[in-house]
């Protein structure tokens, strides 16, 4: 346990604060990008989701200590993430692949 304590000593706290400022800045950038009205909706969505993903990864990696976790947790989360993607992408694909009905 002692080495773990050392790991989460002052160095750890500095890291947490850095992540905190990163999250705040990320939020500001997201809102700013929304304010300037990017040329297409696609671009707006893309930028917003990229920033959100970066922020979420920071929370997961440092706050939730996923950067340095046991293999079992990775396995469980990997499986979950795969099924999550499967659910989302296959549903959207099924929607997009449906024959279009043209209403008069």
């Amino acid at each position: 346990m002692t080495d773990q304590n050392a790991h989460h000593g002052n160095h750890g706290i500095k890291g947490y604060l850095l992540v905190f400022f990163g999250l705040i800045i990320g939020t500001i950038i997201t809102v700013a990008a929304w304010k300037v009205h990017l040329p297409t909706l696609f671009l707006t969505v893309l930028v917003a989701l990229i920033i959100a993903t970066v922020k979420a990864s920071m929370v997961a990696a440092w706050f939730m200590h996923l950067a340095n976790e046991q293999r079992m947790i990775y396995a469980i989360l990997g499986l979950t993430f795969f099924f999550f993607l499967g659910m989302m992408l296959l549903t959207v694909w099924a929607y997009g692949d449906a024959p279009k009905i043209h209403l008069p």
């Binding site: 099924a94 692949d97 449906a98």
Partner: peptide
């Protein structure tokens, strides 16, 4: 078992590609 579910929905007018999947 997680990626077979829509075989219950062939009759909903699903497209041919997703049906094949």
């Amino acid at each position: 078992s997680f990626i077979v579910w829509a075989h219950h929905m062939y009759l909903t007018g699903m497209g041919t590609r997703i049906s094949t999947f």
